[in-house]
């Protein structure tokens, strides 16, 4: 399977930022500093379980539900 990481990242940033561009940019930076580089992932990126696990942890910390993603 592929593309899940990109979907998760987009969902997390969108929910947490409320589509505010300043917040979206700062959340992108926070993800990078925590070791997830959003620009590295596209629709064909393999579903790396390590990165998916990291995003699940971050989503939980940020209070973002990943239900349905």
């Amino acid at each position: 399977m592929a593309g899940k990481i990109k979907k998760m990242i987009e969902h997390i940033i969108s929910k947490k930022s409320g589509n505010d561009s300043t917040l979206a940019s700062s959340l992108n930076a926070k993800l990078c500093l925590q070791g997830v580089i959003p620009k590295k992932y596209d629709a064909s990126s393999p579903d790396d379980p390590v990165i998916i696990g990291k995003l699940q942890t971050i989503a939980a910390e940020w209070g973002v539900s990943l239900a349905g993603v």
């Binding site: 917040l23 700062s26 926070k30 500093l33 925590q34 971050i58 910390e61």
Partner: peptide, 11 residues
Amino acid sequence: MENIGNKTNVF
């Protein structure tokens, strides 16, 4: 900083 950043959008 990671802890703070996880808890709030405030800079």
